[in-house]
Amino acid sequence: MKPDTDTIWAWLDEVPDPEIPVISVVDLGIIRDVVWDGDVLEVAITPTYSGCPATSIINLDVETALRARGLENIRLKRQLSPPWTTDWLSAKGAARLEAYGIAPPSPAGGPKHCPRCQSAAVEKVSQFGSTPCKAHWRCLSCLEPFDYFKCI
């Protein structure tokens, strides 16, 4: 019996992002579609950044997770359009990022406050950080550096 797509979405929501394991690939908004094409399950995945080295690991993790649930005919499709945006990050994902110490993306162009001490006195150290999706900021109150999830 084929599991329905809601069930599959729930399974994929348990697949962690390889670089930020507190959020799932579904939270990240990169799973664009899950459809049955006859007996083949097609999952459309969009890359965050063109050169993000995690992309191939994510594909592998998704496929491994679905196989572990007994699915055998799986087709992963790379979907470029529309391009990924941080607007697709789930509310659950944003809350988990913050709890993990990564400031979630904000349309204002910078973090609202320090994810550790909540101070609004923060400054940018560098527009880039430890992964393509993050920038490097620091808190002027608790003096801790922190990652900010870039808003694109």
């Binding site: 050169g51 150290v125 560098s126």
Partner: peptide, 20 residues
């Protein structure tokens, strides 16, 4: 260090675009 990371990330984006 910050510039080193920024340059490497810029290069990564460009190589990703090259693949496409």
């Amino acid at each position: 260090l910050e510039e080193d990371i920024a340059l490497a990330n810029t290069a990564l984006d460009l190589i990703g675009q090259t693949q496409m």
